Amino acid sequence: MELLVADWLKFSDVLAMLADSVVDYGSATHLNMPEARLKIVLDFGVHSKVYTMVLAEQARMLTIGKLAAIAEISTDSLRYYEREGLVRPASLTRAGYRLYGEDSAQRIQFIKHAQACGFTLAEIRELLELREHTTACCSDVRRLAVEKKLQIEARIKALKTMSKALDIMISNCAGDAIPVGECAILAALEEAKSGKKP
């Protein structure tokens, strides 16, 4: 007899379901359980035994702790990615624990690499959606990459301007033990606040 259930069940739990679930009788009675995760084979004989086999897919599932360790992130980060819609658990145990597929580790590496390239989580979500969209093409991804590059270049330009302004203020500061009220850097910042160039 084959029984499909959502999690490891006690033998008594299995027997309790028989009355409502039996579809066919015989040496290979089948039970129809759509929430299946595990396959349990029941051998009704004098020496009745319950043989529990984890389906190949279920056996490869990862708990949140294992996935976090493999991906080298904290469980808090993983939960945050999940709240942001970047990672989704494949299933839940009867106790409510999240189970993730093996592909989740690769997905997290994709997210981390994209972050290192400057993409925001919202942009990464868009990239992931494009990757899973059957009608999307490479030009859609390229457009996002070009937009990000232009944003980064604009940011670099702004940072260079800030750096030059700091160079001027630093060079104008004597660095001596003079009163703070006479500090050239603070004076330059005050002038900048009033709209004057430092």
Rank of each mutant, 00 (worst) to 15 (best):
T135E: 13
K157E: 10
I168D: 06
V41C: 10
S27T: 03
K157L: 14
T134H: 13
E102F: 12
L150T: 15
K10N: 11
A122N: 10
L42T: 04
A174D: 15
S104C: 14
K39D: 04
P179I: 00
A116N: 06
A90M: 08
D13F: 01
S77H: 07
L78R: 00
E191N: 15
G195R: 01
E72H: 15
L42K: 08
K10G: 08
M1W: 00
A90Q: 07
P34A: 09
I64D: 01
A28L: 11
L67Q: 01
K66W: 03
S48I: 11
K10D: 06
I64Q: 02
D176S: 15
Q115R: 15
V141C: 05
A16G: 13
L121T: 04
Q109H: 14
F119G: 00
T120V: 00
L15W: 09
C117M: 11
D140V: 01
D24T: 09
Y100Q: 00
K196H: 14
A192E: 14
A105G: 13
E126G: 09
A174H: 11
D20Y: 01
Q109M: 08
A174P: 08
F11S: 14
L4R: 08
Y100M: 07
L128Y: 03
K148C: 10
V54C: 07
F44A: 11
A36G: 12
K193Q: 14
L159V: 02
V41N: 12
A59S: 10
L144V: 08
T134I: 02
Q109A: 10
S27I: 00
A187M: 06
S171V: 12
A28P: 06
V146I: 12
G96N: 06
I108A: 04
G96S: 04
D43R: 09
K196L: 12
M17N: 03
E129G: 09
V5I: 12
P179A: 03
V41A: 11
S74M: 07
F110S: 05
L3D: 00
T135Q: 09
K197C: 10
S163R: 13
G118W: 01
L67F: 09
L4Q: 07
R107W: 11
K160E: 14
A69E: 08
S12D: 13
H113R: 13
R88Y: 06
G195V: 06
R142I: 15
R60F: 04
V46H: 15
M169H: 06
L62A: 02
K49N: 13
V180I: 08
K164E: 15
D167F: 13
L166R: 07
A19C: 14
A105E: 05
Y100D: 00
T93D: 04
V180L: 13
G118N: 03
K49A: 09
H47R: 14
S91F: 02
A56F: 04
A187C: 10
A158S: 14
S171L: 15
L86Y: 02
C138Q: 07
T120M: 04
F44I: 09
K10E: 07
L159Y: 02
I40C: 05
D167N: 13
W8Y: 13
A68S: 11
L144T: 02
P89Q: 02
L38N: 01
L67M: 12
G175I: 04
Y81A: 11
A19M: 11
V50T: 03
I111V: 11
L92G: 05
F11P: 15
L186Y: 05
E57W: 09
